[in-house]
Design a protein around this nucleic acid. Sequence first.
DNA 1: TTGTATGCGTTATCAT
DNA 2: ATGATAACGCATACAA
Lengths: 334, 334
Amino acid sequence: MLVLNIMSSLKELSKLLGVSISTVSKALNNADDISAHTKKRVKELALALNYQPNKMGAALRNKKSKTIGVIIPDILNPFFAEVLFGIEKYCSLKGYDTLVCISNDLTSKEAEKIKLLKSGSVDGFLISLASQTQINQDYTHIIKNIPSNELVLFDRLTHHISCDKVSVDDENITYKTTKNLIKNGRKSIAFLSTIEHLEIGKERKQGYQKALKEAKISNNKNLELSLETNAVMHNQIKEWILSNEFDAVIAADNTSGIIVQNFLLALKPIKAKKIKVIGFSNANQSLLTFPQLSYIDQNAELIGQKAAELLINRIQNTNKNKAFTHIKIPASII
Amino acid sequence: MLVLNIMSSLKELSKLLGVSISTVSKALNNADDISAHTKKRVKELALALNYQPNKMGAALRNKKSKTIGVIIPDILNPFFAEVLFGIEKYCSLKGYDTLVCISNDLTSKEAEKIKLLKSGSVDGFLISLASQTQINQDYTHIIKNIPSNELVLFDRLTHHISCDKVSVDDENITYKTTKNLIKNGRKSIAFLSTIEHLEIGKERKQGYQKALKEAKISNNKNLELSLETNAVMHNQIKEWILSNEFDAVIAADNTSGIIVQNFLLALKPIKAKKIKVIGFSNANQSLLTFPQLSYIDQNAELIGQKAAELLINRIQNTNKNKAFTHIKIPASII
DNA sequence: TTGTATGCGTTATCAT
DNA sequence: ATGATAACGCATACAA
């Protein structure tokens, strides 16, 4: 049978079948009070005409759009791309669409997107806070506009907003990593970060410092490099590598570990092999270095999946009063 | 004034103001036949109550959702992330939302997503074909379901579908790049690809071969390495580097150039500096190597922007019969 | 077992 | 200048 790209509606099916619209609707939804015969007829025609229920009609009627709004700071950051992948996968599985917005790390954009997505477009929000929002600690645009049981924060959180949350235990993972390096005989462990302005950046550094302190290793401030992500970053890293001695580096963000690893090989070819570099990354990215970078895998996809799961559960759950949970995804060193 | 996260509607505004719903609607839409005074009153209250028009209601009434459906093969590929960034930016500017789906390079997923997005959810589609679709050359799920004036294909195209298209002139850019290398005295130019199964992969290789042929350089098949993207890829590249001599490499995909550059430094530290490596990449990725990788910038963001622009123009344009265009984005060597 | 009527929020047409 | 009404597609309470 020929199929057309013309939208068929319940109305059209009802006309063609000579039954009422509600009968068609009920038949397609498998209502008890429709005869098997009618159901069969309806479903067959629906299939033949490639009938797809109109989302807007259903959304209006049900006051549920079956769509999740996602706001991330930066799609070009592989971490968020991976989270998004996890979100999309889970939502898709549960029959939800995802409306993706990018805040560009600006509070104004974040607020604008929230306003846009509100009012019928989405049933709930998955948000990773813009860095500007985290720095200024002004969350009114979120608190005022999103009911806390329609919101899940992930990765870039704040304890000022009470809702479901998903993140990595950032402090703990750098603590354990640093401790491990010490145990393996590393004496001069450096720490490089381009995200010290973010909460997760602070936590990662704290974990590192805590481990040093516990091991009674004096904190050599020269081995702590804090940078902005920009064009001169590379020269700064280069200078830093050339003017300091260390036998291990922990890089706190998604890319600088890769840069350090590659630079070492070029700048200190002899020593390079003896210096352990650990970055926050993922399998794909770590493959870009030689030798392959050791990395802390934040399980970004899992973060996305769990965040989506929490939100959909809360949206669909009749018991809206369940206490908010904070899921801490285990990070793994690879 | 206190603002609540309760959805206000035209109905609510009309009740509070003591005017009819249609007056409120018209006032907000700046209709000519509403007095300035009324407009002012309405708009003030709308602002105070943080009124947002319900997208679903408007979509149903207007038969336009002001939403664009985007289907990409892989969000983890930085190229598509960048395209998406361009799409989102432009759509957002024009007041369109983007509904993002991932086909995972599977035709079945692609078809499923199309079906889902059809019927009211989106006004048009931006699609980059799944590799499976390109390989099998079966486009019925697209042709049958999407009117050609509601579709723009980008990057991974086919001439079997007639619609607006945006891509890089892939053959030409590798042709020019290769020619340039030859002009600069390179004698043994290698070509590495992990995407030979894709149309763009074929075109890139053709450009390379064409330039060699024109320069009457015999085509040394050992210098053409074709791989699958997988775990053993790294060993294959390593072997290839060790067992071949070349003074330049063109890498046809988004990551292998970076890998080659880094491997060279480790495996052939002396010769490495004299070997020119050129990849398909972008500014962010190229910063991950040392020395910084030369790369062909596909202007992914611009591809996204142009694709969105073409689609929105065609959707909004009354003249639907304008001939389809194929925009070829200039790639630049950096 | 099937059909009728209503309303979700919006806008356009046609009164008043 | 303002208001009443209808319709978009759907699901449901209620009639028949």
